[in-house]
Structures are given as C-alpha cells and as structure tokens.
Simulated assay, not measured.
Amino acid sequence: MCEWYETSFGEDYLIVYRHRDFGGARHEVETMIGWLNLPRGAKVLDLCCGMGRHSLALSEAGYEVTGVDLSEALLREARSQDGAEAVTWLRSDMRKLPLEGGFDAVVNLFTSFGYFEEDEEQIKVLKEIRRMLKPSGRFIIDFLNPAYVIRHLVPHSLREDGENQIDESRRIENGYVKKDIILTSGTSGPPRKYHERVKLYSLEQFRGMIAAAGLQLEAVHGSYDEGEYDAEHSTRMIFTGVRP
C-alpha cells in the first residue's frame, strides 16, 4: 500500500495548488537570503522542491541550486519553467539522498516535513540535512504553526478552477492535521480522491528533534515578514540554524 505522499503529489496537485505563485516565492527567498547571509555562488539544496518555485528564485538570486523531490510530476513541472536549466533536479526520498553533501545551505519549505508516522523517520530527514551541510552550513525549515492551524482550521471548502471542482475537508485527528481532497473535472470520469497528513509538532518537540539530529537551532521566525515566533498568533514556525 502506497503512502499518501507517494500518490498525492501528482498531476492533480498542480491543479489543486495552482494558486501558489512564483512572485510569492521570490519574496520569501529575499527574506531567506537575509537569514542565511550567504555569498553569491553558494551551494543551496532545496529539499522537497515541488514544482521548483523557490529553487528557481534562489537560482535567479545567484546561488548554485539543487532541487530534490519525490514527485516526478512536480519535477517535470519544475523542469519546464524558464531558467530551469540552471538548477540541478533530482528525484529522491528525503530520508536517503543520492548526494555527497558539501552544501552551504539546505532549505525545506512550505511544510514539507512531518509526513511520516514515527518521530524517528522525521529525525532521519533532519540527519540528512546535517549530512548535506558543510560544517557551519545553514538550514531553514519552514513548518506550520500547530496552534494557529488548530484555531484557524477551515473544516470544509469548495472552489472551482476552470472545469475542475475542488472539494477540501480538513480535520485535526490523533496529533495530525489531515486533508481530504475530491477533484471533479467536468464530465471526464469519476472524482479523484487524495489524502494529505502532517504530524503536528510543538516548538519544544521540534527543538528536541533538531538537537537529536546534531543540528543547532539559532532562531524561530513566525513568518517571512521576519516577525519573531509567537505561539498563539504566528502563521508559521520557521526554524533557522547551523551545522556545528
């Protein structure tokens, strides 16, 4: 039986998340550049790069970028973008990367974390981030803020995108935020159903996993507008730190 993340990031993902724009990625990358404080030409790994929005913006900013994702459909979309030839694209599970490391920075963005049931599997991802980094290399992990998600959860929404109807149901269950998606396209066959699941981690739990992986946490931001993290009001929980 396939895990949810092996089936949910296909061609239909590009429909469901079409509204995620490249302009927003450029704004986020500008903020990240300030946090990372890296010289032009530095080597950056975008771990779980998806359709490549941030990889391409990092490349445009003058970095040598490698984008890794498990989804061939999303990588195909990334490779089709203007400027994609400047980025190295690789397909891989984030827990075991086919790379030697030597990166100046690793970024893991847009809640591309917490996909697995066992904490040890999440820690494997963090250990791979450490292995990818040079000593004194820096990392950014952009995760959701559990308290904000719980308080602002929209249980159900329905929207249309061209001939596509997108029905999304969300719930908090057994320590996870879960989403069920039903995609209906005009008269072209039965509805397609997908499931997404992210394990909710508090700041202290995340801090413990980062330490267990041998990484050093330096700061926690509440958004890309550089506000400090506030457990009740921040929309995100963005970790920045270093490999000692």
Results as ranks from 00 to 15, higher is better:
E6K: 05
F9Q: 00
E11Q: 10
Y13I: 10
I15W: 06
V16L: 10
Y17K: 01
G24M: 11
H27Q: 08
H27T: 10
E28I: 06
E30C: 02
M32F: 09
R40F: 04
R40M: 05
G41D: 05
L45Y: 04
D46T: 09
M51S: 11
G52M: 05
G52A: 02
G52L: 11
S59F: 03
Y63K: 00
E64P: 00
V65S: 07
D69T: 01
R76W: 06
R76S: 13
R76A: 08
E77R: 09
A78S: 05
R79D: 05
A84E: 03
T88C: 12
T88Y: 04
W89G: 03
R91V: 13
S92W: 06
D93G: 04
M94G: 11
L99E: 11
E100R: 09
E100H: 04
D104N: 11
D104W: 05
D104A: 09
N108S: 14
N108R: 02
L109A: 10
T111Q: 13
S112P: 12
F116S: 11
E118P: 00
L126E: 02
K127Y: 00
E128Y: 02
I129C: 08
R130P: 03
M132T: 13
S136R: 14
R138H: 03
D142A: 05
L144I: 10
N145H: 02
S157T: 15
S157D: 12
L158H: 13
L158P: 00
E163A: 08
N174G: 11
Y176A: 10
V177F: 13
K179C: 14
D180H: 07
D180V: 05
L183T: 01
T184I: 02
T187F: 09
G189K: 07
R192T: 00
K193R: 15
L200N: 07
Y201R: 13
L203A: 12
Q205P: 02
Q205M: 08
F206K: 09
R207T: 14
M209F: 04
A212I: 00
A213Q: 03
G214L: 09
L215V: 07
E218F: 01
H221I: 03
Y224G: 09
Y224I: 00
D225N: 11
E228Q: 12
E232A: 15
S234L: 08
T240K: 08
